[in-house]
Nucleic acid binder design. Sequence first.
DNA 1: TATGAATGAGAATTCATTCAT
DNA 2: TATGAATGAATTCTCATTCAT
Lengths: 202, 202, 202, 202
Amino acid sequence: MNGYERRKQKKIDQIYSASLSLFLKHGFQKVSVQEIAKKAKVCPATIYNYFGTKEKLYADMLIDWMDKRLEQCEKILASEIDFPEKTKQIMLLEAKSVNVLFDDAAVKHLGVEMDEWGNQLQQYSEEKVMPFYMKYIALGKQEGFINKEMTEETSMLYFTMYKNELERYLSSEVTREQVDAHIDQLIELFFFGLVGRIKPIK
Amino acid sequence: MNGYERRKQKKIDQIYSASLSLFLKHGFQKVSVQEIAKKAKVCPATIYNYFGTKEKLYADMLIDWMDKRLEQCEKILASEIDFPEKTKQIMLLEAKSVNVLFDDAAVKHLGVEMDEWGNQLQQYSEEKVMPFYMKYIALGKQEGFINKEMTEETSMLYFTMYKNELERYLSSEVTREQVDAHIDQLIELFFFGLVGRIKPIK
Amino acid sequence: MNGYERRKQKKIDQIYSASLSLFLKHGFQKVSVQEIAKKAKVCPATIYNYFGTKEKLYADMLIDWMDKRLEQCEKILASEIDFPEKTKQIMLLEAKSVNVLFDDAAVKHLGVEMDEWGNQLQQYSEEKVMPFYMKYIALGKQEGFINKEMTEETSMLYFTMYKNELERYLSSEVTREQVDAHIDQLIELFFFGLVGRIKPIK
Amino acid sequence: MNGYERRKQKKIDQIYSASLSLFLKHGFQKVSVQEIAKKAKVCPATIYNYFGTKEKLYADMLIDWMDKRLEQCEKILASEIDFPEKTKQIMLLEAKSVNVLFDDAAVKHLGVEMDEWGNQLQQYSEEKVMPFYMKYIALGKQEGFINKEMTEETSMLYFTMYKNELERYLSSEVTREQVDAHIDQLIELFFFGLVGRIKPIK
DNA sequence: TATGAATGAGAATTCATTCAT
DNA sequence: TATGAATGAATTCTCATTCAT
């Protein structure tokens, strides 16, 4: 990478960083390109030179962000800790913020114009996120923590549900203590459901 | 109710109905008051006469909508079917759309101005929604479907999580058949978790 | 005046009173008919039944108000005190608020639509206000306080100027003490100008 | 000044010029930003890029305008003509329109939002306009045209009063001839008051 | 007559985007 | 390439006024 490209990449990173923090705080619609430009210390036109539209900026930034996140998840999955602990860590990591961006207001409520780049996200999800989940579930079954009769699809849905809700929970105004107090109960629920595990087994 | 009031109520209902369907489809931010007015066949100023701001319209409409929904939920809870079936029906009913409005873009991403009426929603939730959930959980424990050691708080969180995610799932582009195929598996997960119930029990 | 008319007159007085205080505080443009209606405890349509337009309400209210004021001025002019003291009292009375309404923002800045009723005010001024001033000036000349060579027109202009400016002064944020400290100096200026009276005369 | 800045300054001047003439003719409230934009041949958004709000445009334009005016006044004060003639020329110049903008509808009736920029005007007045008046009055006393016992405060008030009223007078619908006929009489009043100068002096 | 309700026209302001340099 | 400037279209909201009872 030569000097030109390095500077370009640096600007792009500034833009990613600025837009991520603004989108997280205020949501896609409430953030203007001018705000992002100001925070990233570039001019709005530069953003358009790189990304073309606000939506494309959003999609690109998100994919960049998820790439980094996915890498961390892979490390956790490959580590030596047991499956429930892996689950917990991945959930907490993922939960931190991805959903605000990926699932809610954005992908669902962005409306028509998003569709074009929504496909890009869809594709990213299929090509990178799903395979990771598959691996996760396969491991869970192999280690006896996921009922082997459960379809992969349902397992993923269940995992995603948890992850989403944890994010919602974490981003609400509960104290760190409250979170810690609940998190193990929730992981227990995750594996054993409302009825709970049969005592003798324990 | 005299002629004035009847006509006024009719207009308000038109506005509620129009705004609900538009907000559901496009989200709060992407819907303009003009669009709502057009769909409700009133003029924008009328909406402002009644509600004052777009946010207040949103909050009022939502509360009206949730009132009706809550009534149906109460009926289900009071009916003769067994607890898991009640759970399923309530989830499906609730899931249909409330969360899009209540949890996501709205309450979280609406920004500062919403806070004022967000409190109204908060209050509604505390005064009406929570007590209903409490009743639901108490019944579940009593009938042996909810582990008695589980706190009410965690149970509620778990139930809400399910409900939220079902909504997300239902509003995505899966076919009716796919939904039906999964729903029982999900209810099973709800009660027995990923590990699944011990076979002999079945 | 029968019961009907008495009630009507009462409502009109309420409207006058409400609109006067609101116009004085915020100016013509910044006060809405709805505010006036609310403060006067009638409905906006009632105002339109009586006055037809906001401008006409303004003009009618003003004339009513000036009538009362003029009456007081006449009393002062007819009283036993000396001419300079009469001048002072009239100025202070008049100054209190009439100009805000009559001269400034209103008549000058009200714009095209006012013209129609502006004429009404013009006519009122010619038929009632001017004759009063004439009488005042004639008295001043007769008592030796106004240079007999001065035209009536110029005298009136001069008097009005003073009156206007006093109002401006009084409505600015000076303390009562500051006003009192200046007022005699100003009256002195009014009669003897910047050069001041030749000492020996005194 | 480079090309960018020159063009920007040109646009700003167009906006100042357009808004000044419109505000003078119709008053602050009755002029819309669209009208100004149209007359200045820019788009409304450009005005907002520069000034942020209509009020700020008003304040900025006014200060620009007063700066130019003050410069001319300084020249008159420094010129060789006698004090009464200086007075006359300054009054006529000042009177032309500043007060409409500065004192009346604007500063008094603009309402709450104006306060913020009203302070800006206040400050300008204190820092630039007042010192000029002081100089003027000091000169008048030194040349024997202003009673040395008169406080500066009162002198200024008196001068301002005259100026204000002249403006009012000039902007009313009197012919040029009428103005000329009166102006000397008014200047005479300014120096010698209603009682007039003692004949022998003349 | 008096009123509650409704409205159309227009206000200030924002913002994604493009142009000229 | 990167940018300062400019913009058109839209958005929320206001208000004098009219309508239907």
